[in-house]
Nucleic acid binder design. Structure first.
Lengths: 110, 110
DNA sequence: TAAGTTCATCGCAAATATACGATTAGTATT
DNA sequence: AATACTAATCGTATATTTGCGATGAACTTA
């Protein structure tokens, strides 16, 4: 894509919100986060029992969540322990909250 | 994708949240929604002045937002007036709110 | 009827995302 | 050193997304 067009500059907030939203834009990743929330943290292997996907696929989803900043992993040999990244979670929560709590005036659509 | 794998069944809530998140997963669409919120509603042409994109591209983004249920369009010849779909907006807001306000216990990651 | 306006849709090109199996890297155990 | 375990990464196939220009549909106005 993007063949003749130069890159568009968006506000940082817009980019951030879109980035978080994109990471949440797949049911598998929602499920991973739900599981992480219930279990506080988990290992990649745990997810293999919950999701009917190949190990490499789950690893890839974990990578995307990590790249978006929503989770973090710490080595705990021979496993890797994933938890939610509290700091960014709060940030995302605030961004979505702000986004959804606009005026939404009833006298819209004149 | 999805070559050998049969479709995975997710909870309805998970699918819904992912669907909304996916629609929000692009800065252009965030910007459109922000604009719609400020202006209550708008026409496709209005967005052409705000976004440096081709008319067809913007139309496509509008379609995705419409397919996700976040906006709705009503004909107002010769234009089409887009507004936020209040009902689904509230639904999405509730889903994200629920998703982000989990316990998030501090004693996580043992 | 003809011309203009607005916007959706089609057709295409390129980039990204999703999934898999196979391999590799790192660590622990024997 | 050899084996076992865990998880990332590589290579590949396919689907989807993103973007554009061109065309077409619907409705107004001249």
């Amino acid at each position: 894509m993007k063949r003749t067009k130069e890159d568009i500059v968006y506000q940082v907030e817009t980019e951030e919100l879109a980035k978080f939203a994109k990471a949440l834009g797949h049911p598998t990743r929602i499920k991973i986060l739900n599981h992480l929330d219930n279990a506080s943290c988990c290992y990649t292997g745990d997810l293999l029992e919950v999701l009917p996907l190949a190990q490499s696929t789950i690893s890839q989803h974990l990578k995307e969540l990590k790249d978006a900043g929503l989770i973090q992993g710490t080595v705990n040999p021979p496993k890797i322990k994933y938890c939610i990244n509290q700091q960014n979670w709060i940030k995302a929560k605030a961004l979505f909250n702000e986004f959804f709590s606009r005026n939404m005036n009833e006298i819209s659509c004149k």
